[in-house]
Design a protein around this nucleic acid. Structure first.
Length: 769
DNA sequence: TATCCGGGGTTTTTT
DNA sequence: ACCCCGGATA
């Protein structure tokens, strides 16, 4: 181990303070590029040197990648051998690890399956069918997000049913039976000995709340708790961290409120903003020196984020060179923007010798990648797009893994449903329905019914019975092998004997060939996994070990080092934590960035933080652009520049004419020479609406803003007409008008049941009565 | 039981 | 424009 003086010498004074503070709860606000990971890794190294054993330190991250990188860096500081015993991982993987030990206390076995989103979907879909609920009203995504939100808020189905706000909201959505859906969903997962992603956190929290012995054990075990990206924690994660750190509260949370961009996944920025309220003796540390970007980039980003009300004040600064101003370009269309960006990239590469790897194009929505892709391809600029289905989501991989899962956990109904007729065995819907019903009547799992059809009086004909028996035999063989065969051998055998490999072989189409390759890749991944274990001294690795890792893996984790030089295309969200020499931010338009779906001030602030994240990815150069028209959802949409452009201090930005086009004709504004962005419609929260109603309103009724020219103002709706809205029920149109300032059509409605206030709503969600 | 058509919906997605 | 899903069809 390096001696500590040397180690501490590598830090600046504020980093050093944060690392060596040990007198209680600690909040480290780490500005963009300020060496956040450095502080965390050094802090852990320092704690180890203070004599805290590695296995008593818990460090929680959000991504596997972050955990892996941090572990590597700590390994370099203190030695791999020590680092290995740290409890370091994602919230989900640490919880899964705890739950594997404690499953029995919660009514699960240690072999519980982890359901991914598609399993959850399938499970919820079954329940909706079983309850015969209208799928037009109970939309799957909606149902799941309600369940997920409840779980993230640490609410059981009975809490859900007892919660007035939620009940009111569900009445607005005409989803009167949501609490029951949630209850059955939970029961279904329990019966399948399965947990979804949210359950991993929720159940761990439950355990710590309800089981004093277990709580004491883990509180004693984790003498020091550290959390990365604390601004992204949700309520359950907050509870978890709080509980684990008790009673000593040796806790250190690190994050940047200015980079909180995941509220739609339940992240609650208040966790970081109110940390000091939560822990009265907490000390605040700020890392304000940015080591990544030029002064100009840092200053520009600061000028933007200053417009947010809710934030912890900080003075982020850079001591690197002043650097070039950011550039801003207006293009006539999305196509022109893509051409412009492609040509600027060529130029960068040719003249400045910027490596393609050092260039990224960032955008708000994945849909924007297509035009960019086309232009880059036509110029032979190599690129790589992030986003899209990850390896482990591919059908053939999910099928293979479902076989593993079923062998490990025969109650895993979703896995069973996936594989029972793949490859085709002539077991169709009718049979499955019978099996499922039989399972329900006898209170057992579907696999048990299939294993013992006679004992359970399953009424199918002889040929179907044979098919079922054959399937049962295959799975039984797998089950027998699972504890005695090593993961790789087991996987190979399953792929062979299940018929998956044969099916892929027989398919001569390109997709078939790809599938075969993917399966081979899966096998080699498992091989690698087993080898890795071997090197750690584990002599036998069963497939269950692989399974518990793999279900928590995402596409982020497969980006194995690809050293080919390519330009990176990704959403701003995906870019968080990364840095590039040159960054292009495309599509800076109203209704795109900020997204058309956000209205409330807090949401606008989140979008602003998102742009802050985008700008601060740039080390040296940052190009911003917007298009005046863009193909969106199939039709041409005229757009105006993002309001955020006016938040940016003009001294850091230079506006360029977009190549050939004679630029925009709009009246010059004080700031940029184009029309000021349209003002937000005044969104009046209704007296009788709680916050959750308003959230429901957003989800359901996109307020009209900048609705473009395609909405026929006069032909469809007129003042005094009665209309019905999907969320708010019936109302009277007060007026319909064309907003000259931005060319939008707007409508104002007074709804009968919701407090005689008016709302601006989208036409699409309205029907005439 | 695989495939084709029509309709509805369209943000971001660390696990 | 495109994707996903469900129902109908071959």
């Amino acid at each position: 181990m390096q001696t500590m003086p040397t180690l501490l010498d590598l830090l600046n004074p504020s980093q050093r303070d944060a690392v060596t503070y040990n007198d209680g709860p600690q909040l480290v606000i780490a500005g963009a590029g300020s060496g956040k990971t450095r502080v965390l890794t050094f802090k852990i190294a320092w704690l180890l040197q203070q004599g805290i054993p590695a296995n008593h330190i818990l460090a929680l991250t959000f991504t596997n990648k972050a955990a892996r990188e941090m572990k590597e860096r700590i390994g370099k500081l203190v030695g791999e051998e020590t680092a290995r015993y740290l409890w370091m991982g994602t919230f989900h993987s640490i919880c899964a690890r705890i739950l594997r030990h404690e499953a029995e206390h919660l009514g699960f076995t240690r072999d519980f399956s982890i359901y991914d989103t598609s399993d959850s979907k399938a499970a919820a879909k079954q329940i909706l069918k079983e309850m015969q609920l209208d799928e037009k009203i109970y939309k799957l995504g909606n149902v799941l997000s309600k369940i997920s939100a409840a779980k993230n808020a640490f609410m059981s189905p009975s809490d859900y049913a007892a919660n007035n706000d939620l009940q009111k909201r569900d009445r607005f959505d005409r989803m009167y039976d949501m609490a029951e859906v949630y209850r059955r969903y939970e029961l279904r997962l329990q019966a399948a000995n399965a947990m979804d992603f949210d359950d991993l956190l929720l159940n761990t929290c439950r355990l710590l709340r309800d089981n004093a012995e277990a709580a004491a054990y883990y509180q004693d075990l984790f003498q020091y708790v550290l959390v990365d990206e604390y601004q992204d924690t949700n309520y359950v994660q907050y509870c978890l961290v709080k509980r684990l750190a008790e009673p000593q509260n040796h806790i250190c949370v690190v994050g940047d409120d200015a980079q909180s961009i995941y509220s739609f996944r339940g992240a609650d920025i208040r966790n970081i903003l109110h940390f000091q309220r939560e822990y009265h003796n907490a000390r605040l540390f700020k890392l304000e020196r940015n080591y990544r970007s030029t002064q100009t980039i840092v200053n520009a980003a600061n000028s933007l984020i200053r417009h947010n009300e809710n934030q912890i004040h900080k003075d982020v600064y850079s001591e690197k060179e002043v650097g070039d101003t950011l550039s801003l370009r207006a293009y006539a269309s999305d196509r022109a923007e893509a051409e412009g960006i492609a040509s600027l990239i060529s130029e960068e590469h040719r003249l400045r010798k910027t490596g393609y790897n050092e260039i990224a194009v960032l955008y708000r929505t994945n849909a924007q990648s297509r035009v960019l892709e086309n232009e880059l391809r036509s110029r032979n600029i190599p690129y790589r797009i992030y986003g899209g289905t990850s390896f482990y989501q591919r059908k053939e991989i999910k099928d293979a893994i479902s076989y593993f899962r079923l062998a490990a956990n025969p109650k895993d109904t979703e896995a069973l449903m996936r594989v029972i007729n793949f490859p085709a065995r002539g077991i169709g819907d009718t049979t499955l329905k019978k099996v499922s019903e039989c399972a329900t009547t006898h209170g057992i799992s579907m696999m048990e019914v299939i294993n013992q059809p006679d004992e359970n009086a399953l009424t199918v004909n002889a040929s179907t019975l044979t098919k079922l028996r054959n399937f049962a035999t295959i799975i039984q063989h797998f089950q027998e092998a699972i504890d005695t065969t090593d993961a790789y051998e087991f996987a190979e055998r399953v792929l062979r004997e299940s018929g998956i490999m044969t099916a892929a072989f027989l398919d001569q189409s390109q997709e078939g060939i790809d599938r075969k390759e993917n399966l081979d890749e899966l096998l080699s991944a498992i091989h690698e996994f087993v080898d890795g274990r071997m090197q750690e001294g584990v002599s036998f690795t069963p497939i269950t070990d692989f399974l518990s890792e793999v279900s928590l893996l995402t596409d982020q984790d497969e980006h194995t080092e690809d050293h080919t030089e390519r330009v990176t295309l990704m959403t701003v969200h995906a870019a968080k934590g990364l840095e590039f020499e040159s960054v292009f931010i495309a599509g800076m338009e109203e209704n795109l960035f900020p997204s058309q779906y956000c209205v409330r001030p807090t949401e606008i602030e989140e979008e602003r933080r998102l742009l802050y994240v985008a700008i601060t990815r740039a080390m040296v150069r940052c190009y911003i652009s917007f298009a005046k028209s863009r193909f969106k959802n199939g039709s041409l949409d005229f757009s105006s520049p993002s309001r955020f452009l006016n938040d940016l201090d003009r001294q850091y930005i230079k506006q360029y004419e977009a190549s050939s086009q004679p630029s925009f004709r709009s009246a010059p504004s004080q700031q940029w020479g184009f029309a000021a962005p349209p003002r937000m419609p005044r969104f009046t929260p209704l007296d009788t609406l709680t916050q959750s109603h308003i959230q429901a309103e957003q989800a359901k009724a996109n307020p009209v803003r900048n609705a473009s020219t395609e909405m026929p103002t006069d032909s469809q709706f007129a003042a005094n007409e009665r209309v019905r809205h999907k969320v708010f029920g019936e109302g009277t149109i007060l007026r319909v008008w064309h907003d000259e300032s931005n060319g939008n059509d707007k409508i104002e409605i007074r709804f009968d049941k919701v407090g005689n206030k008016t709302l601006l709503l989208t036409f699409a969600k309205l029907e005439k009565i």
